[in-house]
Write a protein that binds this DNA or RNA. Structure first.
Length: 269
DNA sequence: GTCCATGTTCTTTA
DNA sequence: CTAAAGAACATGGA
């Protein structure tokens, strides 16, 4: 569900309300959405002030005034919203955090692939690759040479590059005119340069539209994103390529749906 | 009933 | 041993 643009939009809509605010009661309606499960957030969070909220990869990181930190991952179907306490509690609401002025931060996640993860003062970064906006062609090339898997699969591997998911991997490969099945370690210097630019361009465009809403995604105010109508390949199988008019194909790579234009993306490296 | 879904981790295979 | 492929997690919509 949420990839970098969606997660960043949630952060941007959460921060104005939450930063500087003193938190209240933490309620877990399901035990298994907190990790590690034995950590006692009911004691660690209340009465602390939110110092900062930011994004790393697809994680929404909260920092408290005592240095304690946690992050929320939205998984496939998670929503993290600020709602008035009297607003009806949606089905699949797992966590509720009072944040003053009659407002609550609520985590709703039907599929429960997401959750809240306590970090304490530990590192956020372990095992995560560089942020897409920090990439340069050389760095991208170096990361891609670490694996022979298809470039599509490599782009989804958060240890190689952090923040892309199925939508923006497909969109970036289209933009860069690279076939998604190309082995990552056979990408040419020229292709890596195009891909580096394409990733940033696609993400910037998506951020401007506040992300893609397919089914569940909304920002912290409950507002869906608008980027879906600007997708060029993702979920457009059978439709015409906006560039050349060929029919967009859907194939499966690494167990994931992959959408591409067979004419624009025919190059092998 | 079938297939599919914006993600990640664990297990199995080569 | 490592890298890659596959299965699993849970729910709901078409």
């Amino acid at each position: 569900m949420p990839e970098l643009p969606e997660v960043q939009t949630v952060v941007d809509t959460l921060a104005p309300t939450l930063v500087g605010r003193r938190l209240g009661a933490f309620l877990r309606l399901r035990r298994d959405m907190v990790s590690p499960s034995e950590v006692n957030l009911e004691n660690l969070i209340p009465n602390r002030r939110v110092q900062a909220i930011w994004r790393r990869a697809k994680r929404i990181i909260f920092e408290l005034d005592d240095g304690g930190r946690w992050f929320v991952h939205l998984g496939m179907s998670g929503r993290l919203t600020i709602e008035p306490e009297h607003a009806p509690v949606r089905k699949h609401t797992h966590l509720i955090l009072d944040c003053g002025d009659g407002l609550q931060l609520r985590l709703v996640d039907p599929r429960r692939f997401g959750g809240i993860f306590w970090l304490g003062r530990g590192p956020v970064d372990e095992r995560l690759g560089p942020e897409p906006f920090a990439l340069r062609p050389q760095l991208l090339l170096r990361r891609l040479r670490l694996t022979r898997r298809p470039i599509k699969t490599a782009l989804l591997d958060q240890r190689l590059i952090a923040g892309l998911g199925n939508i923006y991997a497909d969109e970036a490969l289209f933009e860069a005119k690279i076939h998604p099945a190309t082995p990552a370690d056979r990408i040419s210097v020229a292709s890596a340069r195009r891909l580096n630019a394409a990733i940033k361009r696609v993400l910037r465009r998506a951020l401007r539209s506040r992300g893609s809403s397919l089914r569940d995604y909304v920002d912290a105010n409950g507002q869906p994103g608008d980027f879906r109508r600007l997708h060029r390949v993702y979920q457009r199988a059978g439709q015409q390529c906006v560039t050349c008019g060929a029919t967009i194909q859907r194939i499966v790579i690494g167990q994931r749906s992959t959408h591409y234009c067979p004419r624009c993306q025919s190059a092998t490296a």
